[in-house]
Lab assay of single mutants.
Amino acid sequence: NTCEECGKPIGCDCKDLSYKDRHWHEACFHCSQCRNSLVDKPFAAKEDQLLCTDCYSNEY
């Protein structure tokens, strides 16, 4: 699979995080606004962007 954020392949030695058929490296899986990691945290998706709950609450 190819990472949505950096565009590089996700190798066998990396954790592949996925959501709705989109894939990310663990280090690339972060909020589109504040850039905080979303690994093991709740998040929301809006208009193809992933947002942490704080940024989502502030926007919507």
Rank of each mutant, 00 (worst) to 15 (best):
N1E: 04
N1F: 10
T2R: 09
T2Q: 13
T2F: 07
T2H: 14
T2N: 00
C3I: 00
C3N: 01
C3E: 01
C3F: 01
C3S: 01
E4P: 03
E4Q: 11
E4S: 05
E4R: 07
E4K: 11
E4Y: 10
E4F: 12
E5I: 03
E5H: 14
E5W: 08
E5Q: 10
E5T: 10
E5D: 14
E5N: 09
E5R: 11
E5Y: 14
E5F: 15
C6S: 01
C6Q: 00
C6E: 00
C6L: 00
C6V: 00
C6D: 01
C6G: 02
G7E: 03
G7Q: 13
G7L: 14
G7K: 03
G7Y: 15
G7W: 05
G7F: 13
G7N: 02
G7I: 02
K8M: 07
K8P: 00
K8L: 09
K8C: 04
P9Y: 01
P9E: 07
P9C: 00
P9Q: 06
P9A: 08
P9V: 01
P9I: 02
P9N: 01
I10A: 02
I10P: 02
I10E: 02
I10F: 02
I10R: 01
I10Y: 01
G11Y: 01
G11S: 05
G11K: 04
G11I: 02
G11C: 03
G11E: 08
G11V: 02
C12I: 15
C12P: 12
C12K: 14
C12N: 05
C12M: 14
C12Q: 13
C12H: 15
D13E: 12
D13G: 11
D13H: 04
D13Y: 07
C14M: 15
C14D: 13
C14Y: 13
C14A: 15
C14G: 13
C14P: 12
C14V: 12
K15Q: 10
K15F: 05
K15T: 10
K15I: 03
K15W: 00
K15A: 08
D16P: 12
D16S: 09
D16Y: 04
D16W: 05
D16N: 14
L17I: 13
L17D: 02
L17Q: 13
L17N: 06
L17P: 06
S18Y: 02
S18G: 06
S18R: 09
S18N: 11
S18F: 07
S18C: 11
Y19H: 08
Y19Q: 07
Y19E: 07
Y19A: 05
Y19K: 03
Y19L: 13
K20H: 07
K20L: 06
K20M: 05
K20I: 05
K20P: 00
K20S: 07
K20R: 09
D21M: 01
D21R: 03
D21T: 05
D21K: 04
D21Q: 12
R22V: 04
R22H: 03
R22G: 10
R22S: 10
R22A: 13
R22D: 04
H23T: 04
H23G: 01
H23K: 07
H23I: 06
H23V: 05
H23L: 02
W24Y: 14
W24P: 04
W24V: 01
W24A: 03
W24L: 03
W24I: 03
W24Q: 04
W24F: 07
W24H: 01
W24D: 04
E26H: 05
E26M: 08
E26R: 06
E26V: 07
E26K: 13
E26S: 09
E26D: 13
A27Y: 12
A27P: 13
A27R: 08
A27T: 07
A27V: 09
A27K: 11
A27N: 15
C28P: 04
C28S: 01
F29I: 05
F29N: 04
F29V: 06
F29G: 06
H30M: 15
H30L: 07
H30K: 13
H30W: 11
H30T: 08
H30N: 11
H30E: 09
H30Y: 08
H30A: 12
C31I: 02
C31R: 02
C31N: 00
C31D: 01
C31K: 03
C31S: 02
S32E: 13
S32P: 09
S32M: 06
S32R: 05
S32F: 10
S32H: 12
S32I: 09
S32N: 05
S32G: 11
S32W: 11
S32K: 12
Q33E: 13
Q33S: 10
Q33C: 00
Q33L: 10
Q33P: 01
Q33V: 13
Q33M: 08
Q33A: 11
Q33D: 14
Q33T: 11
Q33F: 10
C34P: 00
C34I: 04
C34Q: 00
C34G: 01
C34R: 01
R35T: 07
R35N: 07
R35G: 13
R35I: 08
N36M: 11
N36S: 13
N36H: 13
N36D: 08
N36Q: 14
S37A: 11
S37W: 05
S37I: 05
S37R: 08
S37M: 08
S37V: 07
S37F: 04
S37Y: 06
S37L: 10
S37C: 06
L38W: 00
L38P: 02
L38S: 04
L38D: 01
V39I: 12
V39M: 08
V39L: 06
V39G: 12
V39S: 11
V39R: 13
V39A: 11
V39F: 08
D40P: 04
D40K: 07
D40T: 09
D40H: 09
D40A: 13
D40C: 07
D40M: 06
D40Y: 04
K41C: 14
K41G: 08
K41I: 10
P42M: 05
P42D: 15
P42G: 15
P42R: 14
P42Q: 15
P42K: 14
P42E: 15
F43K: 10
F43N: 10
F43H: 14
F43Y: 15
F43V: 15
A44V: 06
A44S: 14
A44L: 05
A44W: 06
A45H: 15
A45N: 07
A45M: 13
A45S: 09
A45F: 10
A45P: 13
A45Y: 08
A45D: 09
K46C: 07
K46Q: 14
K46V: 12
K46H: 12
K46E: 14
K46F: 04
E47Q: 06
E47Y: 09
E47V: 05
E47W: 03
E47A: 13
D48N: 12
D48K: 08
D48L: 09
D48G: 10
D48P: 06
D48W: 10
D48Y: 07
D48C: 07
D48F: 09
Q49W: 06
Q49N: 12
Q49G: 09
Q49T: 13
Q49V: 11
Q49S: 10
Q49P: 07
Q49F: 08
Q49A: 10
Q49C: 08
Q49R: 09
L50Y: 01
L50M: 13
L50C: 06
L50G: 02
L50P: 12
L50T: 08
L50D: 03
L50W: 07
L51A: 07
L51I: 03
L51S: 05
L51P: 05
L51R: 11
L51H: 11
L51E: 05
C52H: 03
C52A: 02
C52V: 02
C52L: 02
C52E: 03
C52S: 04
C52T: 04
C52M: 01
T53S: 11
T53L: 02
T53C: 08
T53M: 08
T53P: 09
T53V: 07
T53Y: 03
D54K: 10
D54N: 11
D54W: 05
D54Y: 07
D54V: 07
D54S: 10
D54R: 11
C55E: 09
C55P: 04
C55D: 05
C55I: 02
C55V: 03
C55F: 01
Y56S: 15
Y56L: 11
S57F: 00
S57R: 09
S57N: 07
S57Q: 12
S57K: 11
S57M: 02
N58S: 13
N58A: 15
N58W: 03
N58E: 14
N58V: 13
E59H: 11
E59A: 15
E59G: 14
E59N: 11
E59Y: 00
Y60W: 10
Y60L: 00
Y60A: 15
Y60Q: 15
